[in-house]
């Protein structure tokens, strides 16, 4: 995503928030008569609900297309999936898929706009945008700040979207986690990749704590969750050593006692719930932008 677009969308989200999320709906009905379909090929509650709310606040009709258990599953060619989706005659498709690249390939094939709501290990662009927004609100800038992302970087789409977003806006990024879960081959002058958490936290302005995805067994190369917590968990002790100015974020849902301690959650509760609110604002900005209404707010 180019810098100008990220800035537009974050500005859009800020304007939405300034007006009040629900206020837009009553005053403008910006997307009245337009239809948004949530097409989630993988379970999601936060992102799906967030897109649904965003669409409804803008006055759009939101349809949740049930895909789990339907024929839009294993074995159907992407062409056939496209035909089904186009037959639904919608204005915008919001797609979540467990395989990297599926939203991109569908977007090339359909004539209506597609928003990627997370694909495989690839990207989760609206999550990246809302994290940028959250840090921007707290610190007033992104340029020159230092973001630390902790966790299973290799299998995280959130890590990638945060990484590209923050780097594009001039931040420094450190990726930290177990060496077998770190990318081996990324190079950027403002990017550092390290297994040493204490080291990484020294310069942090914000810390993104990734969810440990137990269901993906991405920690197969590690002895135990306790061992993970001992080396990479944001424990109470580690959090206390961070200055009060350091933001601690988590895309949720949290595994308390693994990647983040309950006590830390208490300290950061407001921050993490702000991430959820910002998620709706960012998705409103994104929907408005793809449907051509970005400048009307």
């Amino acid at each position: 995503m180019p810098r100008a677009l990220i800035e537009d969308l974050v500005d859009g989200a800020l304007r939405v928030k300034a007006e009040g999320l629900g206020a837009v709906r009553s005053r403008r009905q910006a997307l009245a008569g337009r239809s948004v379909v949530n097409c989630f090929f993988e379970p999601s509650t936060r992102t799906k609900t967030s897109f649904e709310l965003a669409g409804k606040y803008l006055g759009a009709d939101v349809v949740n297309f049930q895909t789990r258990g339907s024929s839009l599953e294993k074995g159907e060619t992407l062409e056939d999936t496209v035909r089904t989706l186009e037959a639904l005659a919608l204005d915008v498709l919001v797609i979540r898929h467990a395989v990297s690249g599926v939203p991109e390939r569908l977007a090339q094939a359909v004539t209506i706009p597609v928003i990627n709501a997370g694909d495989g290990f690839h990207e989760h662009p609206t999550q990246g945008l809302l994290d940028v927004l959250t840090v921007y609100e707290a610190r007033g800038r992104i340029d020159g700040l230092h973001l630390v992302i902790v966790g299973d970087i290799l299998h995280s789409r959130v890590a990638r979207s945060d990484l590209w977003g923050f780097l594009t806006l001039g931040a420094y990024v450190t990726l930290v986690g177990p060496p077998q879960l770190l990318p081996s081959a990324w190079h950027h002058e403002r990017l550092r990749v390290t297994p040493y958490l204490a080291d990484a936290l020294k310069e942090a302005d914000a810390v993104q704590v990734l969810r440990i995805q137990k269901e993906r067994q991405s920690l197969a190369g590690l002895p135990s969750w306790e061992e993970y917590r001992a080396q990479w968990g944001i424990t109470r002790e580690r959090a206390e050593q961070l200055g009060d100015h350091v933001l601690i974020m988590h895309p949720g849902p949290q595994n308390r006692g693994v990647e983040i301690d309950s006590e830390v959650m208490m300290r950061t509760a407001s921050q993490i719930s702000r991430q959820v609110t910002n998620g709706v604002a960012v998705r409103m900005a994104a929907l408005s932008w793809v449907l051509g209404g970005a400048d009307e707010h």
Binding site: R157, A185, W186
Partner: peptide, 12 residues
């Protein structure tokens, strides 16, 4: 192939 491009594209 395990490398920069696969990792950027999110392909194992």
């Amino acid at each position: 192939n395990e490398g920069a491009l696969a990792q950027q594209l999110g392909l194992p």
